[in-house]
Design a protein around this nucleic acid. Sequence first.
DNA 1: AGTTTGCACAACCACATGGTTGTGCAAGCG
DNA 2: CGCTTGCACAACCATGTGGTTGTGCAAACT
Lengths: 116, 116
Amino acid sequence: MEDELSLVFSALADPTRRAILERLAHGDATVNQLAEPFAMTQQAVSKHLKVLERARLISRTRTAQSRPCVLDTERLDAVAGWIERHRRIWAGRHDRLDQHLAALQAAQRRDGETTR
Amino acid sequence: MEDELSLVFSALADPTRRAILERLAHGDATVNQLAEPFAMTQQAVSKHLKVLERARLISRTRTAQSRPCVLDTERLDAVAGWIERHRRIWAGRHDRLDQHLAALQAAQRRDGETTR
DNA sequence: AGTTTGCACAACCACATGGTTGTGCAAGCG
DNA sequence: CGCTTGCACAACCATGTGGTTGTGCAAACT
């Protein structure tokens, strides 16, 4: 129905889901563990997980009664590729890797931003 | 209302809008020029442009009766930063920044896990 | 002057999204 | 065995989204 890129982008277009992904970056977690920091029901988080799963940003295993979530790392590559392509085209700057990394580090330093 | 990152991501989560951006990468264009390749009305494209404008991915000038669209290149940097950060964390790549991030990740993985 | 061009605003529509409550069900625990 | 835990499914609701048609209006053309 919808193309992969759109699915991933729209999955990322929600602070709650991005926070979930960040949480999962620190290790796998169960639904309840993921739901705990948010002021919403477990069912709502379940919905978000379904969105992430559909975008193949996470995958889930059925381990007994818990369904731990695992990041699917490759999914971001397509998105990063798209972004990078256009960023370079638009900016017209053929930045070398060093500049790129410097920018990333700067971006990381001013973190705390939007991830919630 | 909504955070910047979500605005940009959701603006990018539509094939039409991404195509518009690609078109604009080759140079500024008017609304009608942008609308021409799509099987939709000029008004629909206008709506898409408003979304892109709200996400500050494009800016518009009022030149006489036409309203040419120009890419706002900086907006993608935040998104690219977010993507790159997480992609590298998850994938555990191999440059200096990556090792730094991997160390961070390992340190953070050391706690949590059982609690929550 | 009158007409055409380029665009935006408004109202409307169908459907998606993000949340809720209520419920059910399989796995583990007392 | 019965209770609790962990999660998903269904129905519902409010709002957002992506499209349409209809209209209006300012600038440019003749």
